[in-house]
């Protein structure tokens, strides 16, 4: 019989080979799929999307910027742009790249697909915020307009994706978020997050890790070239200005802010035996979770009493409209409350 070490070595080798083959994202299979993804159609669509976004932001799309966005060489980009021009999706005027009406439609379709899919992932699945973008980036090229219309209907015609970006309607209408960068919000002026830029993903991951989401109230306390310090939902955050610039906010009147800002607590802060009145459900409470809360009668105005805590520390049981319902800490944090004075 062979030596056990030899057998173990062979097994380890087989395991490695399998891993190399099917490892998510970096495995050969994934790379092969990725390669297929980078077909000329997909690249073309990505290029159109890039040009459209550049135009929106008032930047001038160049061969270099497209090459950078698509991560291909400038030569390949030139060939790609040539093809798109032949398809009459874009035109070159005075050395500038412009979309034709068809090209704009095409770009809008891709953006619509991307943002609708993100909305779908956020509302109807359990995927976390860090995963939405990558999945949508892949799927946006595979959804037909008819599928999008069905998806849009299923999601009840959302107007914005979970990052706060407007979703173009089938006719191409969009409602902008109208925010300005957090770095431009005056110190002590209350504001509300309306948009989180999801590219580049490293910066977005940092925003997600900070627990920021669209709809959160903010108040900047310090702004220097090195950092932006601000309060949001009872926590203090410090971000580098380049990161904070990816957060868009709208200023809100001071009195509106008091409703959710000052003296603001979540259900998780309520000590056992105390009662609190629900002020609002956090916008981060979406989809199935939100509907469940509403069904249980967790609504603005509902009085909730914290009754007992699990001996393991979590969850906590709350008396909600006569029933004893256990909620986890992370869930209780989604419910903004005003403590009842006893």
């Amino acid at each position: 019989m062979p030596h056990p070490l030899l057998i173990l070595a062979i097994a380890a080798l087989l395991l490695c080979l399998t891993a190399i083959l099917i490892w998510p994202r970096k495995g050969l299979l994934a790379l092969w799929q990725n390669n297929r993804r980078l077909s000329s159609r997909v690249l073309g669509e990505d290029a159109l999307k890039h040009i459209h976004k550049s135009e929106l932001h008032g930047r001038r799309p160049t061969v270099e910027s497209i090459a950078g966005a698509l991560q291909i060489s400038t030569n390949e980009t030139a060939v790609l742009l040539d093809t798109l021009q032949n398809q009459q999706l874009l035109e070159l005027r005075a050395g500038d790249i412009h979309l034709t009406p068809d090209g704009r439609d095409s770009a809008l379709h891709i953006i619509r697909a991307h943002r609708l899919w993100e909305r779908y992932l956020a509302d109807e699945t359990g995927f976390g915020a860090a995963e939405w973008h990558d999945q949508a980036e892949h799927l946006e090229h595979h959804l037909t307009p008819a599928e999008l219309d069905a998806l849009e209907a299923q999601l009840n015609y959302p107007t914005h994706d979970p990052h706060g970006d407007p979703i173009p309607s089938a006719r191409g209408d969009m409602i902008g978020h109208g925010g300005k960068p957090l770095t431009a919000l005056p110190v002590d002026q209350p504001g509300q997050i309306v948009h989180l830029e999801d590219e580049p993903s490293i910066v977005y991951a940092q925003l997600v890790a900070e627990g920021l989401h669209v709809g959160m109230p903010v108040r900047v306390t310090e702004r220097t070239p090195e950092r932006v310090r601000f309060w949001s939902s009872g926590n203090e955050h410090v971000l580098a200005p380049i990161v904070a610039g990816n957060v868009s906010v709208v200023p809100v009147p001071a009195e509106a802010e008091t409703a959710v800002g000052a003296g603001y607590e979540t259900l998780a802060d309520i000590p056992l035996g105390s009662r609190a009145e629900v002020v609002a459900l956090s916008p981060a409470c979406r989809g199935a979770e939100r509907r469940r809360f509403l069904d249980l009668g967790i609504l603005p105005g509902t009085v909730i009493q914290a009754e007992m805590r699990s001996p393991s520390g979590d969850p906590t049981a709350y008396r909600i409209r006569g029933a004893l319902i256990a909620l986890r800490r992370a869930q209780a944090k989604l419910i903004k409350v005003k403590r009842e004075s006893t």
Partner: peptide, 12 residues
Amino acid sequence: LKGEVSTFSLEL
């Protein structure tokens, strides 16, 4: 399973 919907509620 990370894509499946997850909501917690436990009625006592």
